[in-house]
């Protein structure tokens, strides 16, 4: 469990990146920080591994104030995955993954063996192990980044827009992979993104931030979608992909899902007969919502 207690970060130039931020990040769940550029997401994330120290307030991990811990040691116990993978260009894939375990004293041979196994875990072919990062595609590099983040078997995995630089198809693939991994491993994941769809897909708990590191709303995707607390949240939630309140229209031989503007959103595959009778407001649901699932997406 990670707890933020009234954390404020003011950079030397006077920028207040995070302002009086308090939050409990539950263990074994994925918490997503989402917000526009400059809303303090990265700053919040980097305070967890002391890459940034708060100006005031404190952060506890499992009850221990991390301000009292040695930063280097703390960082070696926390997985960190960043955009553009941040791999060491002069080390082979397998050595990149083995880096932190070796820093922690694991013998080279064992660390490399374990690194190969981790490549399997993240869905990478072992034949890529002897390549250098520059010889991989962006998506493959990102997977190596995740493998490196998992290498010390950390309880906490910090991910800063890890899928921000890959194309939508690869991104969707990586997102599914992360969901699978998370089902298997159950890490405490803190994930940063500015993509609300990604936040709702991956997050058990979603934190919507406004500029200046102020919390706009915290909740599960379903809670936020159903009850956006204010205009800012409803705009943010709705802005990324048209309007989200969908309703069903019957077109004789099938039920079509249509959004507020009348734009076709997909086909309703009824898993229960009641789905067809759902009214517009009741069919609001996050991507993980129960009942109806929308297929096909944008078919206009």
């Amino acid at each position: 469990m990670i707890e933020f207690h009234s954390v404020t970060k003011r950079f030397p130039d006077g920028t207040i990146a995070v302002d009086d931020f308090s939050l409990v990040v539950p263990s074994h769940k994925t918490t997503v920080f989402v917000g526009t550029s400059g809303s303090g997401k990265t700053t919040l994330l980097r305070m967890i591994n002391r890459m940034v120290d708060p100006t005031s307030g404190s952060i506890d991990i499992d009850g221990a104030d991390i301000g009292t811990l040695e930063p280097v040691k703390l960082r070696r116990s926390i997985g960190y995955v960043m955009q553009n993978s941040g791999l060491l260009p002069h080390r082979k894939v397998v050595d990149n993954v083995a880096t932190v375990p070796m820093l922690r004293g694991m013998p080279r041979k064992k660390a490399r063996e374990q690194a190969l196994a981790l490549l399997d875990t993240v869905g990478l072919d072992r034949s890529l192990a002897e390549r250098y990062p520059s010889q991989l595609s962006g998506g493959q590099q990102q997977r190596v980044g995740v493998a490196r983040g998992l290498a010390v078997n950390p309880n906490i995995l910090l991910m800063d827009e890890p899928f921000g630089a890959v194309d939508p198809i690869v991104r969707a693939e990586l997102q599914q992979e992360l969901l699978r991994l998370q089902r298997e491993l159950g890490k405490t994941v803190v994930f940063v993104t500015h993509d609300i769809d990604e936040a709702f897909l991956l997050g058990d708990q979603v934190v919507i931030l406004r500029t200046g590191g102020k919390v706009a709303q915290v909740g599960s995707p379903a809670q936020i979608l159903a009850n956006p607390i204010d205009d800012f949240v409803s705009t943010f939630v709705g802005a990324e992909r048209g309007k989200r309140s969908l309703h069903v229209e019957n077109h004789g031989n099938g039920n079509i899902v249509v959004d507020e503007t009348g734009r076709l959103a997909g086909v309703l595959v009824a898993s229960q007969s009641t789905a067809a009778t759902a009214s517009g407001s009741e069919s609001r649901a996050g991507p993980r919502g129960p009942g109806a699932s929308v297929q096909g997406g944008d078919s206009r």
């Binding site: 960082r75 070696r76 960190y80 960043m82 941040g86 060491l88 880096t99």
Partner: peptide
Amino acid sequence: KIIDAARAVGMSEMQIVLKV
């Protein structure tokens, strides 16, 4: 970014100098 990542995964300053 490379240096930042090396620090973030837990390299000490000396290790960053010597290994990166």
